[in-house]
Computed example of a mutant assay.
Amino acid sequence: MRANKTSGDKTGFFTKFTSRTAKILGHARVFAAAVAALVLWACTGPLLGFSNSWQRVINTGTTIVTFAMVFIIQSTQNRDSPALHLKLDALMQELHVTPLHAL
């Protein structure tokens, strides 16, 4: 079994994957592509008679994307939250140079 960490690398495959994926999916072009796909799908509705298969395409696609994005978003938030708290703690320590009871 291969180790997930090398001597100089502290981040695993999943962390790298979710970070890159979140960065890519956060771009406006990806959002525009998703909107274009929805418009294209909607335009094919009349051509395909709004069939059950036509509806299954969008239902299956959105289910898969939603399922994957839940894990990607949770992973990025799990990493961002501790970093944010450390920064807030440091900021609070800087702002509270003089204790309130000394005022």
Rank of each mutant, 00 (worst) to 15 (best):
T62E: 07
N4A: 12
L47W: 12
D9H: 02
T62L: 15
Q74W: 07
A3V: 03
G61Q: 07
F50P: 04
F31S: 12
F50V: 01
G45K: 04
L100Q: 10
T21N: 06
K10V: 10
Q55W: 11
V35N: 02
T62I: 11
Q55R: 14
Q77T: 07
W41T: 03
F71R: 03
K10E: 13
W41G: 05
T60H: 04
S53R: 13
K16D: 15
V65L: 13
V70A: 10
A34L: 11
N52V: 13
K87D: 05
Q74R: 09
I64S: 05
E94Y: 00
G12T: 13
C43F: 12
R2G: 09
L48N: 14
R29H: 12
T98E: 04
R29F: 09
H101P: 00
A3Y: 05
A22F: 15
T76P: 00
L38V: 06
P99N: 04
V39R: 02
A34Y: 08
L86H: 04
A83L: 12
R79T: 01
H101W: 03
V57I: 15
K23L: 14
V57G: 03
A22Q: 11
A32N: 12
F31G: 14
W41C: 05
S53F: 12
N78P: 00
K10P: 04
K23R: 14
L38F: 13
D9W: 04
L40F: 11
R79Q: 09
S81I: 15
P99G: 01
V65T: 11
M92S: 01
F17R: 07
M92R: 01
T98H: 00
S19T: 15
A102N: 05
F67T: 13
S51E: 07
Q77W: 03
A37C: 12
T76I: 10
S51Y: 08
W41P: 04
C43R: 01
G8I: 10
V57M: 12
I72F: 03
T18A: 10
L95A: 10
L95G: 04
V65Y: 06
T11D: 14
